[in-house]
Amino acid sequence: MLVMKKLSKVYRTENIETHALRGFDIHVREGEFVAVTGPSGSGKTTFLNIAGLLEDFTSGEYHLDGQDVRGLGDVARSRLRNEKIGFIFQSFNLIPDLNLFHNVDVPLRYRGMSRGERRERIEASLAQVGLASRMKHYPAELSGGQQQRVAIARALAGGPRLLLADEPTGNLDSQMARSVLELLEEINSRGTTILMVTHDPELAARANRNVHIIDGQVSDLVHEPVLRAAAAPATATP
């Protein structure tokens, strides 16, 4: 699904070079639920941005769903982002002066779908996250957890192959966090690949694969049983 080989990203300002990612190798298969962990400044957000085609990289290769993204222009990248990827952010990032229906509508508009088809998908999407009845409401009228669920509905509406989540439960209390995570697990069980950045070990344990990033390099916890074991006890839940 997602293959990166020897990827590096270097930020250059006037006098300083920062290597956010160096020689990054990762292969995510379809249907995996991957948790990406690491200390702050390790480059996990950069990795997510590059995976989501929000940022370009300095050298290396990146194949998304079999397609080499190097050299793609803005229009092609945007189309890829629109059709293949769904985003979920820590701060929800819903558009405040559009109601829920129109918020979920946004990515579909850039597909050129017909009115009827969009309506179907939006209703189905919102129903999937349990908020169909509040379609005409505005984000400000919802709780944090509900807003995140709308964001998920928005991410799903276009039927993406890959879902990228950046600290999806960071702004939620533990109960809401749990319900969001359950939603994500359900989505994953239906076949959507999920890449989730988190610094919460409990969340990381719920994923079926853990990837750890330190200083711009990846270490796959599948091959680091010690750390995996450390994460496991935290999954005992009341």
Binding site: G52, S78, P107
Partner: peptide
């Protein structure tokens, strides 16, 4: 700018 960022993330090309 916030809204523009979101729309771009959701797949809007610059020309849109």
């Amino acid at each position: 700018s916030g809204e523009i960022g979101v729309r771009r993330a959701l797949g809007a090309p610059r020309r849109a």
